[in-house]
Design a binder for these strands. Structure first.
Lengths: 191, 191
DNA sequence: ACCATACGTTCAATATACCGAACGCGCAAG
DNA sequence: CTTGCGCGTTCGGTATATTGAACGTATGGT
């Protein structure tokens, strides 16, 4: 990940987001940067840069901070906190082939994801396995399809709901009809 | 985070867990380490060490891997829990008037409800306020409607997503068209 | 006013995460 | 068997994440 041209340059978007997240959590707790650095066993310099969004922290550094703040590590990576007001997201214009579109991800520790899948007729699409403990819900908005974990496929029609453990490979397959489905993925909160 | 005594030594527990996660996800996809490294823009050496649990990867490295695997970054940090069985629920037969149907409610660590609403044309339906901190998501399966909190209504069409704080009174109203929507209600665990 | 303490930032130095290259291995084609 | 290719691992070298110290600022005590 070598970024040429800049030494000690601003890190990627993720780094900036994480920095903001850390600063926010720290201030919520009324903790000074110096104190957080002390508790986490880091130097003030590291924390300062990190909060500024500069640089590219390691996992251990983040883990130490999460521990010192008493929050799960994944909370530091939450990009889309749901404190926000009303939020609308329009879908992409229709295209050929299957589309898999992440509509939204919310919750401390990424507990909820909303996806929209459009599967043309006679198409098979495999679902990516998620973290263990994840539950996947599938609401058929229109059309019909066969879906589920590889060893337990079910026939679904418009309006049906399928729920299954999302940590195994699974499958969406259409027949004559296309399908338009909403997928809700709920992951356990872990640290 | 200086670990004395060992150069290039094994990283912390977190690093090992992440390494295992990465390897698992990669193999689930039938992808070789070399190919993943290529797609993520990393060297084979980095990935090899990372999967072995050795070392201490940076956020950018992990981000690149998550991207190449098409999974959210936080999935790489998840720990084990257990899974649930497959569960199908068929919807009721179509009826006149608006229907508000609870598809599923789960309550492990958070409360998650899935509703299906069918709103005929020229109908107004008010949503009940939920607990503070609750987020309501509304995915339009078909048709069109106006929805949202009383003071911030939005026009929505097929495929749109609306997200808003569910602890205020809100409203669903159709015009000429009927609407068929999936509602996801997520209540946070209060801590 | 003066000093002391704590804060957050910036610097040179050091430890280390990453890279490219070389290695040994297994497999398939010639 | 020999050659070639791709795999996953192990080696220096180099870029850089982290550090400790020095800095300017703000606040409180004497």
């Amino acid at each position: 990940m070598r970024v040429s041209g800049e030494r000690r340059g601003a890190g990627g978007a993720t780094a900036a987001a994480v920095g903001a997240q850390v600063r926010q959590r720290r201030l919520q707790r009324g903790m000074s940067a110096a104190e957080l650095a002390r508790r986490a066993g880091l130097s003030k310099a590291t924390l300062s840069g990190l909060e500024a969004g500069t640089g590219n922290p390691t996992i251990e550094t983040l883990d130490a901070i999460a521990l010192a703040l008493h929050i799960p590590l994944t909370d530091l990576l939450a990009r889309d906190t749901d404190a926000g007001p009303v939020h609308v997201l329009a879908t992409e214009p229709e295209r050929d082939g299957p589309t898999r579109e992440l509509l939204r991800r919310v919750g401390g520790g990424h507990t909820l994801e909303l996806w929209r899948l459009r599967v043309p007729p006679h198409t098979s699409l495999d679902g990516l396995p998620h973290a263990p403990g994840t539950v996947e819900h599938l609401v058929v908005g229109s059309g019909a399809l066969t879906a589920g974990p590889g060893d337990d496929l079910r026939e679904l029609r418009h309006g049906d709901l399928l729920a299954f453990a999302g940590d195994r490979p699974h499958l969406y397959r259409t027949g004559e009809e296309a399908a338009d489905i909403t997928v809700v993925i709920a992951s356990p909160v872990v640290g």
